[in-house]
Amino acid sequence: MAPNTRTILICSGKGGVGKTTLTANLGIALAKQGVRTVVLDADFGLRNLDLLLGLENRIVYTAQEVLEESCRLEQALVKHKQEPNLALLPAGNPRMLEWLKPDDMQRIVEMLREIFEYVLIDCPAGVEDGFKNAVSATKEAIVITTPEVSAVRDADRVIGLLNTQGIKPIQLVLNRVRPKMIASQEMLAVDDVTDILALPLLGLVLEDEQVIVSTNRGEPLTLSGSNSPAARCYSNIARRLQGENIPLIDPAKEEQGLRAKVRRLMQTKIF
């Protein structure tokens, strides 16, 4: 039994900003630190957390069977191949959405809290029933957004809803940051986003093509210990969650090396 279990909801409002990718990478990174972690897919309508973790073909039972008591929780949990500290509780079939109530979600999470130290809940997009069910079972939240006005707007709405449910603390992850575009003022700067959302920043994740590759392979970036920019960002977020004090990356300093120097020289008006 783990007494100090942290239950964290990972949500964004808007779809496609990186909730599931963050959940998978954070799960692996925490497990690597030796923490017993479970990721719960609360997106019953469109589940794909199992895909990202490469566990799709190992699913036998789902949360649905656990709730119906036609199997034990241990049978439904899918252990990760390489990281035994990480387990996945798969979402049931989409029909579950019709009958799943906040109580059911709370029951599942309560069972998971008995076994694990971290329960990460991958929230569905939107603010409808699926979101409400997921919120009812959680204590903390991580809101993920990208530096785009639409994503920031939706995140703002979600934060308002989380506040009314008494979720605390709520932390922010800013995904798909492109230092170049911020430098040329084509993208919202980090300050612009935190200014509106007024949340403590848990981390930035740099834009990285490797994320797409890893998604398609079903191997989260943090798994291979790769040194790609996004992998480093995800590991740092996991370590900050554990209470380590790691400074945030500064997008302005990410652009170093010869090419950046030349570009900066061309932008300064000496000539």
Binding site: R153, D154, D156, R157, I159, G160, N163, A198
Partner: peptide, 8 residues
């Protein structure tokens, strides 16, 4: 007292 967020 408190911030009005999107949708409020």
């Amino acid at each position: 007292k408190g911030t009005l967020r999107s949708g409020d």
